[in-house]
């Protein structure tokens, strides 16, 4: 009996130790990614890094300004297309839809959120690059907007559905039509949730690479035309990381650090201010 118990206690110790080791491994990996990205990236940060475009691979006074502009252009265009449509769709799901319709739509949205980003790229190529005959910032934005749809819609819908029934009833009781209730009461109360969803989705598409490979393609100069190939920070990292030039590789590290800090900042601010848990999916 006592030997049996001792064996069980030892077993417990072993598994608990393994469990702590798992935590240690995870933290070491996370620490290593952040540490190396920071150490290797911070050296290339300079004024010209943020203000100059791509130059010849041997010129030290070059930067990622053209890629930052491209990324901002495509991400904001995607957000401008996707946000209003997603919020309106979310209002329909939470305020008007029948349960049966809502559940089906939720299935589709969740499945859509799980589609690999590279497939979004291929589809966007077929839908927006092939008909227009050119790789373009527009096609890149559409790819990113498509990625944003399910994320934004589900986040907004969740926020709307958390708004208490009594607020809606109060609005209806004073004679507001339902559309004003959803716009002025539900959307207003749920605005933090919507903003959180937006920030997370924006962070996601801002760091996205794969769908841009076959839509925006990349470019060496500042974006001037929305219907021309355009660079993004992530495309630049990919291109430079494969190059044999040390200056470019260092710039890729710097750009990687930039993207990492953007994402960590968005997520940490949200995590510790709103306490929202849904950022894994």
């Amino acid at each position: 009996m006592t030997i049996n118990l001792r064996v069980r206690k030892i077993k417990e110790k072993i598994f608990f130790t393994l469990s702590y080791i798992s935590i240690a491994i995870t933290l070491i990996i996370l620490g290593s990614v952040i540490f190396f990205t920071f150490v290797k990236g911070i050296n290339s940060w300079s004024i010209s890094f943020f203000l100059s475009p791509q130059r010849s691979p041997l010129d030290p006074n070059q930067g990622i300004a053209h890629a930052i502009q491209g990324s901002l252009l495509m991400s904001f265009l995607a957000a401008a297309i996707s946000t209003p449509i997603s919020i309106l769709a979310a209002i329909y799901l939470s305020e008007y839809a029948s349960t049966a319709f809502r559940e089906k739509a939720e299935y589709i949205l969740d499945a859509m959120a799980g589609i690999p980003s590279i497939v979004v790229g291929v589809v966007s190529y077929l839908l927006f690059v092939l008909p227009l005959g050119t790789f373009s910032a527009f096609a890149g934005s559409m790819a990113l907007a498509i990625m944003m749809f399910p994320l934004m819609t589900r986040a907004s819908q969740d926020a709307f559905m958390r708004v208490g029934r009594e607020y809606r009833e109060a609005g209806l009781a004073v004679g507001l039509p339902k559309w004003k209730v959803s716009l002025h009461i539900v959307l207003y109360i749920a605005k933090n949730g919507v903003i959180t969803g937006f920030a997370l989705a924006f962070g996601r598409i801002f760091g996205e690479t794969a769908p841009l490979l076959m839509t925006a393609l990349g470019s060496r100069s500042f974006p001037t035309d929305i219907f021309a190939p355009t660079s993004s920070i992530t495309l630049l990292i990919y291109e430079y990381s494969k190059s044999p030039f040390e200056i470019w590789i260092n710039i890729a590290w710097g750009a990687s650090l930039f993207i990492l800090i953007m994402n960590l900042a968005i997520n940490l601010v949200i995590k510790f201010s709103v306490g929202d848990r849904r950022w894994v999916i």
Binding site: I29, V33, T234, S241, I259, N263, L264, N267
Partner: peptide
């Protein structure tokens, strides 16, 4: 731990490559 899921894949790519 959840922060790891928010890091873009190109950042992991750079780390993995070098």
């Amino acid at each position: 731990v959840e922060l790891m899921a928010a890091i873009p894949s190109i950042v992991y790519g750079m780390w993995a490559l070098f």
